[in-house]
């Protein structure tokens, strides 16, 4: 089996895992936008004018990308979005750690710094998720995906 075959096989569970993860991560942010806005503000990276727009929009991008990965719809596009988000989260985490902030990452339910503090382990975890997104981006061949079903249908209609 070639490395690309291995990547293609791993891409399917990876996209399901990332899809479920992003849908789950978006849930509390969509349900409690104010709490998520506080989490965004806590990083101290964005100017005040951008805190709310990011807190409103980002969870929905996570949700849409997660659902696309789960369903197998435009998988590579969704994987690119997830990889871009993970790269952004990693940069924010590194900045916060570099500044010595003792805070919650705000990645999932806001539980406060005491229960969910950012650490180098958070960075490693996010780096792994970033690597999974890249794996899906590079390795996906459309197996068990809605894309393939749509392709077959359109091919059948064309003949």
């Amino acid at each position: 089996m070639s490395p690309s075959d291995v990547a293609a096989r791993m891409a399917v569970p990876a996209r399901w895992y990332l899809g479920a993860l992003f849908v789950w991560a978006s849930a509390h942010k969509i349900a409690s936008p104010h709490d998520f806005a506080v989490d965004v503000a806590t990083y101290g990276i964005l100017p005040l004018a951008l805190v709310n727009p990011v807190a409103i929009v980002l969870p929905w991008v996570e949700l849409v990308a997660g659902l696309m990965l789960l369903a197998g719809l435009r998988v590579r596009t969704a994987a690119l979005l997830v990889a871009a988000m993970m790269a952004t989260f990693l940069a924010a985490l590194l900045l916060a750690l570099g500044r010595g902030l003792d805070m919650s990452c705000g990645c999932f339910a806001s539980r406060g710094a005491e229960h969910d503090p950012i650490s180098w382990l958070t960075v490693v975890r996010d780096a792994l998720w970033f690597a999974l997104a890249v794996l899906v981006l590079a390795g996906d061949r459309g197996a068990l995906a809605l894309d393939r079903l749509i392709e077959r249908r359109s091919a059948r209609c064309a003949t």
């Binding site: 936008p33 806005a37 806590t42 101290g44 807190a55 409103i56 805070m103």
Partner: peptide, 15 residues
């Protein structure tokens, strides 16, 4: 419970 598009006052961040 929607957020205003631009926050008018800074969030109280306890770090």
């Amino acid at each position: 419970a929607g957020l205003p598009l631009v926050a008018r006052t800074p969030y109280e961040v306890l770090v």
